[in-house]
Computed example of a mutant assay.
Amino acid sequence: MDSFAANSKKSFHIRSNSLPSKAHPVVDEVNENLCRLRASEEATSSSSSLCQKLDGLQDLQDSIDKLLLLPLTHQALVDNKSVDELLEGSLKILDVCALAKDVLSQMKESAHELESALRRKRRDQILVDVQKYMNSRKLMKKAIHKVLKRMVTTSSQRGDENSEINSLLKGAEVITFSAIESLLCFIAEPKLPSKMSRWSLVSKLMQTKRVASKEEEANENEVEMVDVALHSITNQKCDFFVQVEDVRNSLRKLESCIHDFEEDLESLYRRLIKNRVSFLNILNY
């Protein structure tokens, strides 16, 4: 009986050693945040969905912060042949995030200047300032599209992901690029045609005048609505001062949208800086 018990104990011990080791809770947390963000990539880009993505990125960077404190991460990074690529990637993310912040700041300034012009009630001056805003938008779109082309090349580059830690950090980099890319596309698009049909224009304006459903509000592009309202002024399709009021209403929504984006981006930017510093400290240890 004693011999049987001893053999059973030995057998159990051997089997337990063969079981896969359980992932660290922080590793699981990073994976969960990545999965949530990847699941949201297919969602229609709206200001509300983009804010949710930016909030999700903040949660992801908080979990990355915890990951960088683990001894297993220190060892993985020290032994990682792709560490230079990860460092370069973190710097590029900071640059793109800073660019998005600058774009939003410029948009806010332009929107504020236009809103001030609309209060003057002088038709000739309003038309001048509307054209100034539209010209500024064209230059901004052109600059954003150049950045987006570079981002496609950068985000498609993949390094050695044999290490789980390396895979998580690279995954965080790619998903962050993707979310900021969606934000920049939201700002740069849509490209309004030089000649919109009268029916298309009236349809757009009617949508802004009636009470929208919650679903329609959730999918609304505040940048587009300002562009459409301004386009109607330059084509003088309706009563001028009615159009001015449409623009003012659209600008108020846009400024609120920009405010939310700026707050989320600033919080994300601070987390990205903190994690890059932690990353560099590990390598200099």
Rank of each mutant, 00 (worst) to 15 (best):
R150E: 01
L127W: 02
T154R: 12
S156L: 03
Y133M: 01
E113T: 05
Q157R: 13
I93P: 02
S105I: 11
K92N: 13
S155R: 14
L127M: 07
V103D: 00
S155M: 11
E113A: 07
V152Y: 09
Q131S: 10
D102W: 03
S155A: 12
K132W: 07
L94C: 04
T153D: 15
Q125F: 02
I126D: 03
L91I: 13
S136D: 13
A111P: 03
L91V: 14
L127C: 03
M151G: 00
D124P: 05
A98W: 04
Q125H: 10
R120I: 00
I93K: 10
L104Y: 06
S156Q: 07
A117C: 04
L104E: 10
D129Q: 11
Q125L: 08
K132Q: 15
V152F: 06
Q125R: 13
V147R: 01
D129S: 04
T154M: 06
Q131T: 12
K108T: 11
V130I: 02
D102Q: 08
L99T: 07
I126T: 04
Q157M: 14
S105D: 15
R119C: 12
S116Y: 11
K142T: 06
L91E: 11
I126L: 03
M134I: 09
I126V: 08
N135F: 05
A143G: 15
L91Q: 15
R123C: 02
V103M: 07
V128N: 05
